[in-house]
Amino acid sequence: MSANVDTTLPLEYQTEQNRLNILGFWIFLGAEIILFATLFGVYGVLYERYAGGPTHKDIFVIKDVMIQTLLLLTSSFTMGLAIFEMRLHNLKRLITWLIITLVLGAGFLFMEINEFIHYVHEGATMQTSAFLSSLFVLLGTHGAHVTLGIGWAIMVIIQLAKRGLTPVTARKTFIIGLYWHFLDVVWIFIFTFVYLKGLVG
């Protein structure tokens, strides 16, 4: 571990290594913004190319979209509470909030998989039209990130349970927290510029 430990800071900022890792993760999130921007760009160009297939209004179910949104929004909130408890050094509460976050995230994923199954049953597959190709790629990339995040957070929880709160485990928890909030930010834009836009126009 790096030498200059500043114990006046929260655990995750105490070592130089931790500060660099957190900075590095913010830069990664900058790259993630670009990744999703390219997918939003593709969707924005192709979203009316139905090729005779189903349109937004044929397949989107607003009630399910609202449930997905609330699940992810609440999970972002509970992730915030987890980090809040981490800074109060409440390991048990931290792990409890992390598990609640993951349950909500899994609920979101369950809804999204059902959504995809529903679309395919309606005859809306990835191959049907340019609109649907770009839709599935955008939603699928976000869903893949959520899936990865769940697996990642489970490993962090295991480390927390085994090693307790140290500068290293605190930093790892803080970074998965940033990742999880970021996924909610992406979802806000999917909610607005895919679902709501599709149901207005």
Binding site: Y13, R19, I27, G80
Partner: peptide
């Protein structure tokens, strides 16, 4: 929630994200 401005790299974080947002707007 993410405390973007927090820590000694707070300003760097803000600039980094602003640049990301700028690039996103240009791309989309």
């Amino acid at each position: 929630f993410m405390h973007l401005r927090e820590g000694e790299d707070g300003k760097t974080n803000v600039l980094n994200i602003l640049y990301g947002v700028f690039m996103a707007v240009v791309i989309v």
